[in-house]
């Protein structure tokens, strides 16, 4: 299955960076675009139902619909959770506005495409659980 076009484009852009340091710097720039869930959607303390299980960065996900397409919001409570912030931006920018069913086209392993295979088990599973949380929420809408 093909990735949603904006998500595919993000991955293509990152693939341009073959040097690890440059790629990491590009991901840092992505993470800097992270904005937490607006307070009109959710305010802390967030409901546990939105918590991403096993995410050490303490990420929360809200999946809704707006204008006939997906709307995604995230919170990352751990200020050191930069990878979680970067992934949240990639998912939000890549999936918002798409039909909810398109979220199922995102493989969990997108985490490794973004960050490489050199993640710890805990980090990789926490990030993959973010992807799964989005897909699970989108499945309920589709």
């Amino acid at each position: 299955m093909a990735l949603p076009p904006r998500l595919a484009s993000t991955l293509e852009d990152l693939a341009f960076f073959t040097d690890r340091a440059e790629r990491v710097q590009a991901l840092v720039s992505v993470a800097e675009r992270f904005r937490p869930v607006p307070t009109e959607t959710a305010a802390p303390p967030y409901e546990e139902a939105h918590r991403v299980p096993g995410c050490e960065s303490e990420a929360f996900v809200w999946v809704g619909e707006e204008g006939g397409g997906l709307r995604l919001d995230f919170a990352v409570l751990n200020p050191q959770g930069l990878s979680a912030m970067a992934l949240a931006v990639v998912l939000k920018e890549g999936l918002e506005g798409e039909p909810a069913a398109r979220a199922q086209d995102v493989p969990d392993e997108i985490v490794f495409e973004l960050f490489g295979r050199e993640l710890s088990m805990g980090k990789s599973l926490g990030l993959m659980n973010m992807v799964r949380a989005v897909k699970s929420g989108a499945a309920r809408l589709a």
């Binding site: 710097q25 991901l27 993470a31 050490e56 490489g116």
Partner: peptide
């Protein structure tokens, strides 16, 4: 553990050792 942290900013003069 987080591979992005060092590049986002570190103690001046610090080098990174990736586990």
């Amino acid at each position: 553990e987080d591979p992005l942290l060092y590049s986002s900013g570190h103690v001046p003069g610090a080098v990174e050792v990736d586990w």
